[in-house]
Amino acid sequence: MIPDFNNMIPELHYYIHRKCTPNWKIDANVIPFIDITYVIDGKAEYNIGGHIYTVKKGDLICIPQNTYRAAVNIPEDLMECYSTNIFLRDQFGQEARLPLPIISHIGIIPRLISRFHEIHEEWLQRDFGYMLKIRGILCLILYQISNLILNENHLSQEDPRIKNSIRYMSMHYQDPLTIDLMARQFHLHPVYYGSLFREAMGMTFKQYLISLRLNYAENMLKSGEYSVSEVALQCGFSDIFYFSKLFKEKKGIPPSGMFPPERRKKKEDTILLPGGKEE
């Protein structure tokens, strides 16, 4: 099961683009932060919690907070890496754990290297609001590495046809989209396209479209600016009774239950279900 990363807030404690010398080492200590190091060249030997690891190009090191750490270089193959020491908390200010393996071989990922370059520039320039910007970049890095390591479907989601499909659906969710229409855009047979989509997203095209529409509907309802009927129509549901039933089934409460507390119930918000009962 992939942990929920949505509430994690990273804070950079220290950053270095490390180019090791023959005598480089990290003295033994128990670190009060999380050490995330991405090796982009060479090798080194780490002692992490009493276990010896030889790390190499393409390895991602994730050392938990309050862990014993020491390291020495391998002189014949000097290591180059990006190293960030971070504190991680949830939205309530409590310390959070980063549930990643200590060593993961992810290879050389250009877009990930670009993120570390961005931190490098901000860390050195220290312009107005640089820590806020670094925090945002760290969030992107944590997302990318967790997606690479923990998300079993990440490779299939890299398919440009699926990525473009998701982008298109996000912009046209209210339109009468069908799997045949989307398959034609990529010159694919609908059955093959449907198989690609399910492999990438873990659900069928129709299931994803309904989920997308209901998420948009939830967001509109929470604003308190639209009636239930308006939300249903704007989110691609021509049958308001079907929308109400489906919303309650998937979200656990009727659409009107999403309205902010300060909104008084209006007549147009009441839906009479078959049999004369109110929603």
Rank of each mutant, 00 (worst) to 15 (best):
K277R: 08
D239I: 13
L148M: 12
L78T: 08
P110T: 11
Q94K: 15
R69K: 05
M8L: 14
I2T: 05
I271R: 04
P255W: 07
I2D: 00
I34C: 03
Q91N: 12
L98P: 03
Q94H: 15
T21C: 04
V191D: 14
M1Q: 08
S114R: 07
I102R: 09
Y242E: 08
F128C: 02
N164T: 08
I63Y: 01
I36P: 02
P160F: 10
L98T: 04
S156R: 11
H17C: 04
Y53G: 02
D41K: 13
E122P: 00
E262Q: 14
Y38W: 04
E118D: 13
D27K: 06
Y226A: 14
S83N: 10
P176G: 14
M220F: 07
L209W: 15
G129K: 00
Q174T: 14
L88Q: 02
K267N: 15
Y242C: 03
K57G: 06
I149D: 04
L196E: 11
F237P: 10
P3Q: 03
H51Q: 07
K248G: 07
K250D: 02
D35P: 00
L140A: 10
P101S: 10
S244H: 15
R213E: 03
A70R: 05
P22C: 03
L177K: 06
I137D: 01
S223P: 02
F205P: 10
E11S: 07
M201V: 00
R111Y: 09
Y130S: 03
A44N: 03
E118F: 08
Q207K: 10
I34K: 01
A71I: 01
G194R: 05
I109H: 01
G136E: 07
